[in-house]
C-alpha cells in the first residue's frame, strides 16, 4: 500500500489521541515505532491491515466510526497534496470513476519493475449509465467498508447524494466485491431530459 494511507492513519491517531495513542497502535500492530511513512513508497498490505485493526481496538471505536474519521482525514490530505485531481472532476461521479485508475496507476507506479509483474489492479470502475457506476474491488485486504466510507465522503465533498449497494462481497465468499453507486438526483435529471 502507498505510504500515504498509513501516514494519514498515524496523523489521525496523533491528532485525536496524541503520540501515546499512536505508539500504542504501532506497538499493537508490531510496527517500528520510529517509522516515517513516505508517500512515494509502497509498504506491505499486511502491515497496513495490522495498523487499522490495532487502531479500532486501541481507540475503542467501532470499525465504521474509525473508517468514517479516516475517510474524512484521508480526503483532506489527498486534496491538499493533489488538488488537481479534485478539480478535474466535475462531480463525485467523475471523481470516483477516476479514483480507481488513480489508485491503480499510483500503486503500480511505485512498485519496482519486478513487483509489477502479475499484479492486477485492485479497483476497476465503469459507468453503467449516466448516474450509475460499478466498482469492482478485488483485494485480499477486504477493505470494502473503508471504500464505502470514502465514497460517501467524496460525495459529501461535491455536495452530491449517493446510494451505495454491494451486491457481491468477498466477506460473503464472493471472488470480489462489487459496488453499485448511484446518483439518484442525476438519474432523475437524465430521465427528465
Amino acid at each position: 500500500m502507498i505510504g500515504i494511507i498509513q501516514q494519514v492513519l498515524l496523523e489521525l491517531l496523533d491528532q485525536h489521541g496524541g503520540n501515546e495513542l499512536k505508539q500504542r497502535v504501532l506497538k499493537a500492530a508490531n510496527v517500528d515505532p520510529s517509522i516515517n511513512y513516505r508517500i512515494d513508497k509502497n509498504y506491505s498490505d499486511d502491515e497496513c491491515l495490522r495498523l487499522i485493526n490495532a487502531a479500532v481496538i486501541e481507540t475503542g471505536l467501532s470499525e465504521t466510526t474509525v473508517y468514517q474519521h479516516y475517510a474524512t482525514a484521508f480526503l483532506k490530505k489527498a486534496q491538499a497534496l493533489f488538488p488537481r485531481f479534485f478539480e478535474i472532476a466535475d462531480d463525485s461521479e467523475g471523481f470516483l470513476l477516476r479514483q480507481a485508475r488513480i489508485h491503480a496507476v499510483m500503486a503500480s507506479g511505485l512498485k519496482r519493475q519486478d513487483e509489477r509483474q502479475h499484479v492486477n489492479d485492485k479497483f476497476t470502475a465503469t459507468s453503467i449509465e449516466p448516474g450509475k457506476v460499478r466498482v469492482i474491488y478485488r483485494s485480499a485486504n477486504g477493505l470494502c467498508r473503508l471504500y464505502q466510507a470514502l465514497a460517501f465522503e467524496v460525495a459529501a465533498l461535491y455536495d452530491d447524494e449517493i446510494e451505495f449497494e454491494e451486491p457481491c462481497c468477498m466477506h460473503q465468499g464472493a471472488v470480489h466485491c462489487e459496488f453499485l453507486i448511484s446518483w439518484p438526483n442525476k438519474r432523475q435529471e437524465v430521465a427528465c431530459d
Binding site: 513516505r38 512515494d40 496507476v105
Partner: peptide
Amino acid sequence: QKLALLVNFLLEN
C-alpha cells in the same frame, strides 16, 4: 516525495 510519486504515476500511465 510527491514529485517522485507523480513522476512514477506519469511513467505508469
